[in-house]
Each structure stands twice: as C-alpha cells, then as structure tokens.
Amino acid sequence: MNDGWSEWAPLLWTATRETLVMVGVAMLVTIPFGLLLGVLLLLTDRGGQLESRVANRVLGAIVNVGRSVPFIILLVAVIPLTRALVGTTIGTTAAIVPLALATIPFFARIVETALREVPNGLVEAALASGARRREVVSKVLVPEALPSLVSGVTITTIGVIGYSAMAGAVGGGGLGDVAIRYGYQRYETEVTIATVVVLVLLVQLLQFAGDRVSRRLSHS
C-alpha cells in the first residue's frame, strides 16, 4: 500500500493538473463562443432585436445537433479537425478540441435561457433611452443575467470535468486516463478510488465557489 502510494501520488498530481488544464482551456474557449451563440439565439428569435426566422432555425439546428451527438462519438468524429487545429490527435491539447465543441452548444443554451429571464421591460427602458442593440446586450442583458450566467458556467464546467474523464479514456491524459490505465486495466482499485475522490473534491470546490460568486453578484 505504502509502496503504491509513493508510486502513483505524483502520477495523480500530474493527472489532476492535466484535467485542470483541459477543463480550463476548454471553458476559456467555450465561454466567448457560447455567449455569442446564446446571444444570437435570443436576438434572432421572435420579437428579438435581430429577428430572423432563418438565422434562428439554422443556429438552433447547429446547437441541437451538437448537443445530441454522444460525446464519445464526437471524440472520434472530430479527429481530423483536431489534427488540423492542434497538429496532434492524442494528449491533453488534442482533447480540448472535442471538449470545447461538445460544450459550446450546451453553454449556448444555458446563456440563451439566462438572458431570456431578463424582463423585457428593462430592454425597453434602455431602448427608450436611445440604446443601440449592442448596448442592450452589453449594458442590460449580460449584466442583468450575470448571476445566472455564473451559475451556468459552474454547471458547464462540472459537465466538462465529466467529459474530460471520457477524453482520458482515448488518450487525452488527465484523471480519467489514470483511472482507466491503473484502476481498470491493472486492477489497482485504490487508484480508481483516489481519482474519484479528487474529482469529487474538484466538483465540490467549483460548486461552492460558483454559488458564492453568483450570490455576490446578485442584487435582486
């Protein structure tokens, strides 16, 4: 036991860092694209500032397709794209591409829902003051939805942690990779347990921090 621990503790540490990088970078890509897509989904919808039936249908379809493809299939399907973008198809960097692709549509829907909760009266108050469309987005919709958006980022990040474990299974590195290689393939159950504990802690910490930030931002 002692022997095992000294062997895989550094391994666990490296894997945790890999997971954090994968999740962190995937989220850094997801947040701007998801925001943009979510805003467009809202604005192109009926009664929106950029109302367009066609644009809304197309964006909606892209998002729905993105959300309905099982992650494990996406992981394989985007291999050519991954190679083109990051030059390799294995390892942590490569895993970021399918992770972000799977997460952007999910986060876009969360953004759309959060922005939809902003009372229309607030948008009208800004328009009545002479606001442009982008000012409506930047000064009303996003700031008013910020607490919900932060909660949405928390939920999405936790989801990405789960996906990143799957990415690990196909050579992406990180905690999932360690759990599979040591715990599953070599029957070292302690390793599996240890990775699960680390994952649980990560999720708890994220949820706690996310809730706190969201609450601090809310003045309603």
């Binding site: 009372p119 009208e124 108050a125 003051s129 002479g130 000064k139 008013e144 809310s218």
Partner: peptide
C-alpha cells in the same frame, strides 16, 4: 423623450446612481 414605467424597469445590477447614468452612458 424620457419614459417612466409602471414597473419602474430599473436595472437590478446597477445602483440608483448608475441607473440614472445609463442614458448618459448611451
């Protein structure tokens, strides 16, 4: 043209002064 509303329509994310400043920002 200024407008006032039945439900006030103040931004919850802004203080009173910041709400008043919104049209000036615009």
């Amino acid at each position: 043209i200024g407008m006032i509303f039945q439900q006030f329509n103040l931004l919850t994310s802004r203080t009173a002064a910041e709400n008043v400043a919104l049209p000036l920002e615009i």
